[in-house]
Nucleic acid binder design. Structure first.
Lengths: 124, 124, 124, 124
DNA sequence: GTGGTCTAGACCACC
DNA sequence: GTGGTCTAGACCACG
């Protein structure tokens, strides 16, 4: 389900985080769905449990998942809290940098918008 | 001209790279314009020359700048070579991840496209 | 395994690069083989880790090796991408210059071709 | 006549050396032909006289040109001395390295030999 | 343990 | 003056 790229420059724990979030957005994971325990996930992905734990901790901090002590870990209900301003700003900066890079590589505004559209269509 | 954020998680040498590229895109830097020598830039930014040199090396590899032996460093003529496929793929992946994150934070498709439009308007 | 010539005019980091590439070509290093960590290699060769790191970075950029996060560095699978045109052109220029020099020194076409043949026989 | 690439990694003085040698090999320059004074050459190439002087000094050491005091500089008669062993060895090493690089980039033995043949045909 | 980044300072070749 | 290379050492994130 989750695909780890061991040789990516993106840390493994971040790959887990983004893929779980994207699984939620795409509708593969719904609120209340259980996700594997740290150890099982670690086995599945062939990574150390610490790496998975780090990802789960961050996901819990962001209220993407909830851990019910002794029962397991589940996808959380969508948060009603307004997202932290800082997170939006950071993601916007990343978006802008990626755009600039793509412009530099010759991608036109139309191609870019089409790409955005494709991404939005993917989500549930 | 270039603003370094010492506490950013983005390495300093990368900040230099992206800001020079963006300077070119925005038209502040034109082909043939000289850019400060490694040592001068290092003084300006209060970083070590090695860090600036690393950025300049990468920029030269990407054909953004050219160094003329013993003379200094200049903005290169726009490259005619098609950019490596892999670079585009990588930037697209970054874009997609940033988008997904923004969607997660509640940004709509319209807002996103407007953002893209704003970015494109900035450039020369 | 790798022999550094401290008094060569070829930079040490380039000597490391060419020797690893040649090790692959000669079949001493196969895809998946681990290569020593930056620090171990630095100790072996009596150079600073930074120098080895620079060589490894360049080798990774050229997809000769891959680094697995926190695990170490390995010989990469042969790349399927076509090499950049510019690389071939540059190497051809170097070849031509070396040939011209050898012609100047009295080497005949036959001797040269024999030399080429010898080189090709060395490789796996 | 001589083409300098200011942004090449090969030093300018070396570019002058190799191009004069290659001019001789190709027959464009014959023994006894005059070559421009240091200053004229420097003007032609838009480089500093010191750079040209360095090239001429090296060419004279290698007995490619001769300077007749007060009369100018000329292409020398072909030397009868056997070339220094060390020069041959060095050029062979360069050739081998360039070959290995080309092999790495996928050039076959046949292509390589054809290239060699082309080079030999160019010379007088 | 691994590599990545950065500092501080040296020496060199080239122009 | 320029950039290129190397050393010696530090700190950090990741696994």
């Amino acid at each position: 389900m989750i695909q780890i790229n061991q040789s990516s420059s993106q840390p493994i724990f971040e790959q887990i985080i983004t893929q779980i979030k994207q699984g939620v957005l795409r509708g593969h994971l719904k609120p209340g769905d259980p996700i594997p325990s740290v150890r099982k996930m670690a086995l599945q992905l062939s990574v150390t449990p610490g790496t998975v734990a780090k990802a789960y901790n961050e996901l819990e901090r962001q209220e993407v998942i909830v851990t019910l002590r002794g029962k397991g870990t589940y996808i959380a209900e969508p948060s009603t809290n307004r997202p932290a301003e800082i997170q939006v700003t950071k993601a916007m900066k990343t978006l802008e940098d990626a755009c600039m890079e793509l412009i530099y590589l010759g991608i036109t505004e139309e191609e870019m918008k089409e790409k955005i559209h494709t991404i939005y269509k993917q989500i549930k």
